[in-house]
Amino acid sequence: MDRLKNKVAIVFGAGPNIGGTIAHFLATEGARVCVMDASEAAANETVAYLQERGLEGFGIAGNARNNEEVQNAVAQTVARYGRLDIAVNMAGRVHWSHVLDMKLDDWNDSVGSFATAGLITTQHCARAMLETGGGSIIHILSTAAHFGEADGAAYCAAKAALLSFARSSALDLAHLGIRVNTVTPCSMEHQLWTTMRDEMFDPNWTPPERSGFYSRQEYLDQMPLRRFPKASDLAWATVFLASDESSCMTGADIAVDGGLRHKYPTWSPGKHHPVDIRDYARNVQWTKYGDPQGPLTDLLGEPV
């Protein structure tokens, strides 16, 4: 409970799944937390969740791609808590399109957002960390940073840019006592009840017309651990990188993907240890800020 005692953190992105869960876990381990989100309501909801549990935090509306808004969030955090030790960035915009149909505005929005947010958050947070002798900066990536994905040229390019940026900034900041690391999840379990719910629960569902589309069953069949990562899995990896337990790590990437990235490409775990995606969904606990809320079927009904 005290792995981050007396530390101060900023989390850029405050939704109840990944960003909010990370903020919750940082605070549970003793950190005082600022959460910044483009949605003021999302930031306030996360802070209310923390405060209801006796945890310390405050929220602020802002865009991590905006230099002045990030600078303001860092300044407010330091003014309130006197220091900054941890920064977690997961800001960016996603656009899917076949490469021949990609709109330049969408490309610029996606590619610019992840790398630009990475630069701005790193700059302002690192400058604040210098005042107290160092800190830990963590960027949340995606398997898209490591692979090509059909219909995902903009997203893959953006996340790969953020990965290389994190590695380079780790070298620039190492002698200043500031560590920069990354965490790479794959498709997350919470997406079963958000963006991918219809695939399992709608009997009339049909696949979208995207050349790069794959079903949740196809995805699960590639997972050596035979499950999707939870938001809490990602949060615990972030807590580790934020803590002194990882004090000799910088420029590193932690894969939180059930073994997906490291399996032999032509080996399909699902052929040897089958798991039906609808049975999987029946056993899922949907979560909010990392806390179980009940069976997924209570939220969406019985899978067809």
Rank of each mutant, 00 (worst) to 15 (best):
R3I: 02
L4I: 01
K7M: 11
V8H: 01
V8P: 04
A9E: 07
N17V: 02
I18D: 00
G19A: 09
T21N: 01
H24Q: 11
A27H: 03
E29D: 11
A31L: 04
R32Y: 10
V33I: 08
V33R: 02
C34Q: 05
D37F: 04
E52F: 09
G54K: 04
E56R: 03
A61I: 12
N63R: 14
N63A: 13
A64E: 00
N66P: 01
E68A: 10
V70H: 01
V74Y: 00
L84V: 06
D101A: 14
D101E: 15
K103H: 10
L104R: 04
N108V: 12
T116P: 05
G118I: 03
L119H: 10
L119P: 00
C125W: 06
C125Q: 07
M129F: 05
L130R: 13
I137F: 05
I137M: 08
I138K: 07
I140G: 02
A144K: 11
G152K: 00
G152I: 02
A161D: 08
S164D: 06
A166C: 10
A170D: 02
A170R: 01
H175F: 11
T182I: 08
C186W: 11
E189L: 06
W193V: 12
T194Q: 10
R197Q: 15
M200S: 07
M200T: 08
M200H: 09
M200Q: 09
D202P: 08
P203M: 06
P207I: 15
E209Q: 14
S215T: 15
E218F: 08
L220N: 04
L220P: 01
P229N: 08
C248F: 14
A255V: 09
D257H: 07
L260H: 04
P265A: 12
T266S: 13
T266K: 14
W267Q: 10
P269W: 04
H272S: 08
H273W: 12
R278T: 11
V284K: 07
G290M: 06
G290C: 05
P292C: 05
G294F: 03
T297V: 13
